[in-house]
């Protein structure tokens, strides 16, 4: 038992979101979208399908970026838990301190397919993205960032444990 200082009530952001959802007024919240023609559907043809069916880091990077040469760099910061609360929802984020970042990818090396997600980052968009991914088991998670054509990365081992009761 190592109780930590209590966290009273909820984070303000949760309450903002809740209030907005409840009121149904906040920008863009809860609009059923199918009938909404505000933005055209993205082109599925741009999907790098091959990169998503590989079983190794090298093959994935090769399919995604055309090279598997990657350098671990302290300029890529990555946030992921030591132990995942639940493998189905693991918050992972990266933040690159590098010029001319054009793309990024998050890999989970021991997942059935290594590639979890990738991003094309245009000029003006910050090379820092947070998302939630699934991990099938304990694995090394790698954030790869393409900067000036070169790949740099950060990685972290994330433990996925069984539930208590089996």
């Amino acid at each position: 038992m190592t109780e930590i200082e209590g966290l009273i009530l909820s984070a303000p952001s949760r309450r903002t979101v809740l209030a907005a959802v409840a009121a149904g007024t906040a920008a863009g919240l809860m609009r059923p979208a199918l009938s909404f023609a505000a933005a055209a559907a993205p082109r599925a043809s741009s999907y790098p399908a091959k990169a998503f069916i590989q079983h190794s880091q090298d093959a994935t990077l090769q399919a995604m970026f055309g090279t598997s040469s990657v350098t671990a760099s302290a300029d890529v910061k990555m946030d992921a838990p030591d132990i995942a609360e639940n493998g189905a929802v693991v918050p992972v984020s990266f933040d690159a301190n590098a010029p001319k970042v054009t793309a990024a990818a998050i890999l989970a090396l021991d997942n059935p397919f290594v590639m979890a997600c990738a991003y094309k980052i245009p000029e003006g968009t910050s090379p820092a993205i947070a998302s939630r991914i699934k991990l099938g088991k304990t694995t090394k998670v790698v954030s790869v960032v393409q900067s000036g054509g070169k790949l740099m990365s950060a990685s972290k081992q994330v433990k996925v444990t069984l539930g208590g009761c089996g």
């Binding site: 132990i83 433990k159 444990t161 069984l162 539930g163 208590g164 009761c165 089996g166």
Partner: peptide, 20 residues
């Protein structure tokens, strides 16, 4: 094994992974 003894759910012992 969780469906059998599941000892490590509650007891730490050497070699147990993330025991309780």
């Amino acid at each position: 094994t969780t469906t059998l003894g599941n000892c490590d759910a509650c007891h730490m012992f050497q070699g147990a992974d993330e025991a309780g």
